[in-house]
Each structure stands twice: as C-alpha cells, then as structure tokens.
Design a protein around this nucleic acid. Sequence first.
DNA 1: TGACTCAGTCAACACTATGTTGATAGCTTG
DNA 2: CAAGCTATCAACATAGTGTTGACTGAGTCA
Lengths: 219, 219
Amino acid sequence: MNAPTGSEVYLPRGRRARKPSGDDRERDILITAERLLEHRSLHDISVDDLARGAGISRPTFYFYFPSKEAVVLSLLDRVVEEARANRAAALERAGDDAWEIWRDGLRAIHDTFRSHKALSRTAAQLFAENPEVRSVWSVVMEGFVGDTVAGIESERARGAAPDGPPARELAIALNWMNERVFLASFTGQDPSIDEERVLDTLLTIWSRAIYAEDRLAGA
Amino acid sequence: MNAPTGSEVYLPRGRRARKPSGDDRERDILITAERLLEHRSLHDISVDDLARGAGISRPTFYFYFPSKEAVVLSLLDRVVEEARANRAAALERAGDDAWEIWRDGLRAIHDTFRSHKALSRTAAQLFAENPEVRSVWSVVMEGFVGDTVAGIESERARGAAPDGPPARELAIALNWMNERVFLASFTGQDPSIDEERVLDTLLTIWSRAIYAEDRLAGA
DNA sequence: TGACTCAGTCAACACTATGTTGATAGCTTG
DNA sequence: CAAGCTATCAACATAGTGTTGACTGAGTCA
C-alpha cells in the first residue's frame, strides 16, 4: 500500500525523485546521519563522513541533499510526523476527560522524541542557527500551543479551571518547559533528572498551573 | 580603584596579562563581538571580522583569544557576574517573605539578560555545541536550581507549601522554563509573547506549581 | 539498432575560514 | 646597551564546503 506516512510533507529538496537505486542512497544517507549523530555533533560530522557512510562520494551526496543540515531537516520532518501519528493514536485510545487527553498526548510526544534522542538534540541546536529548522520547529510548537490554549479555554469556560494569565502565555510557557526539560533528560545533562519520572513532574506542574490544584498524574 | 568586578573568575586564556595597550585591545575585541552579535549569528562572524573591528590583524587576534568562542565565553562570564550582582542587590532591598524574594530575584536576572539579548541568544546556541559554554551555563543554572530547592523545602517545612514532586525536579523544570521563555521573548521568536508581561505569567506558574495557589505576582 | 535522454557518479577545482610559524619592531629594565 | 618581554603581522598549512564538467550505463523509441 505504498506507505503514505504523511512524509509527503517533505518535498525532496534537490532531488528529481522517481527511479530505484536513488531512493536507496537517499535512505542510506539518512540512516548514516542518524547513526553518526548518536556519537558526535553535526558540526563534527563532515559531508564526506555522510557520503562515505552511504557508500558514495562527496559530490554525489550533493545530488541528494543540498547540505548536511537538509539531511537533519528531513529526519526531523519524519520524526515530527511520527510524533503526530503516535499522539493521534494515543488520543484515539484516551477517554474524553480533558486531563486524560493532555496526559496521554504529552506522553506520546515524549516517548516519540525519546526514541530519537540524537536527532532531538541536534534539532534543538540547529533551531538556533538554521532558519529552516527554526521554522519547522516553530510550526510544531505552535500546534502544541494551539491545542493547549483550546484545552485551557474550554476548561475555564466550563468552570473546571480558574482564571489566570492569558491562556496563550500560559500555554507557551508550559510547552517550552516540556521541550527544554525533555531535552535535558535525553542528553543526560543533569544526572538528577530521572528519565522515567520527568513526565510525571511536568504533568503536576501543568495541573497546578492550569487548575491551581493536583489532578491524578499517575498512569 | 582597579574595578575588581569579580571577573577574576575568568582566567585570561592565552594571555599573559599585565601591560597597558594589550588590555585595551582585549576590550576592543569584546566590544566588537557584542556589537556584531546584535546583527548576525556567531557563525556568520569570522575571526577576521572581530580582528578588523578591533583594529588588529587576524593573527594578532589569536594573541588575545584562542577562538571566537572564547570571546563569547568571556562576555558570558561578565554578564553572569553582573546578573549575580544585580540579584544580590535586589535581595538586599527585598523583604524576607519567600515569595517576594523569588519575585525580585527572578526579575533581576531577567532584566540583566534582557539587556544583553544578543549575548543571551548566542550563549544559548553555543550551549549545545561548546563544552565550555555548557559547563559555565550548567553551573549558573545549578546555582538557580539550588536556591529554588532551598526555598521550596523551607516553604514546605513551615507548612506554607503543600507536598508534591521532589523539590529538585520541580526546581529544574521551573528554572529551565524561565530560561527558555526569556530567550524566546528576547529573540522575538513568538510575537505573541509580551516582553513586559512574560515575567508575571512565569511568576504565576511558579506560584501555582509551588503553593498550588496564587500569590501576588504584581510589582 | 543506433541515436537520444537522463539518473547517477566522481575527479578536480575554487573558495572560505581556521589556526600556526617565524620574523620583526619597540618598550623597559637591569 | 643588551636582554627580555609584549605586541604585531605576512605567509603558510590545513580542512571543509560547494560547483563544474565530463563519464557511464540503463531505458526509450523512431
């Protein structure tokens, strides 16, 4: 069924797609990149490393991607798509209690990026220096923020959550908090963060920030 | 009085300090760097740009700093010192209510980095790619986190704050949230963040996360 | 079947930036 | 005034990026 995973979103930059062996090489480059990123930063990986890893020469690399940053961007698109899909699946299974929806949605996103730590770390770094990555990630965050705002406003409307700061500012702060703390946990940056428990702590903060009281945070 | 601002912390990498004209040049390089960073990223500034800006040749630059990253590190050390000093001064003025202490301390830190936006942005980026910057910033964050933990625990001990997640995890999440949201506000990344009001929103989240209720967040 | 096209490939080149060497010019100090 | 240190830079070596132009081989179709 030709797996329409939604990665059509990613338009194959620099490649006039179609033929057989070419797609394999493109895939080899992506795999090589994610593998090498486990052990060094993008800066410490040369285009030559990626090319050799995929069994081609450096100029040939440029036939497939315009730069090594574009490779990361392509990987990021795929993982973002995976996160969306996992979140949708989780919400499918969740009940219709607003709190349960947040909890399971956040867990799905966390777990997806957690299974691509190296890429997450790299994307966070490129966010600062690469406009395209910044743009992709801003759209992703905006999606999360928008959902959060809608959730907060509907909870406030039905009297379940008290008033407070503008829903949008609250949502921005909470979502960026998650992003940053997930990353710190993935990179083992602070050894006192328990990778298994971070999410519960963050959920408690969400609960208190939105409801000014504790909801059930456990699984 | 020879201004012992505390920047002794920064050991003059690569420079056998003492004589006259040399200190001027070092200062010129630092000033040039902070000026150029207002308009482009560190990556887009070459060592040659810094050297010319300070009126010297590229090799001479290396007499003063081992790399352009070292220049940023030096600037960062200074701003961190400034933040510490401003925070200490603010706490001097504050009463002894725990909440007031947090509010004024956070405001001092926010204002300091806000007056060095370009450097803050650059440091955040270098955090990901440069071990020395990561180390400096980790120490700074650890200071904030440690203070926050102490505050939370003392509030819990005297019954002013309810139980909840481990104080340290809570403190880490709240402090990283601030770091990330300050940065987003400085870079104008999300136009819906009101640079004047962010701090109040963050303070409300701190209040609810720690006390599970609202304290006075206004000035 | 033979001329044409086109994805795929790479050696060689041009360019840019970093960091190093070695030589030199000028204080300043005993 | 010679020894020693600070400060300086032309020239070099190196590493990485991105581009050009030419070659190959598989499919196409007149």
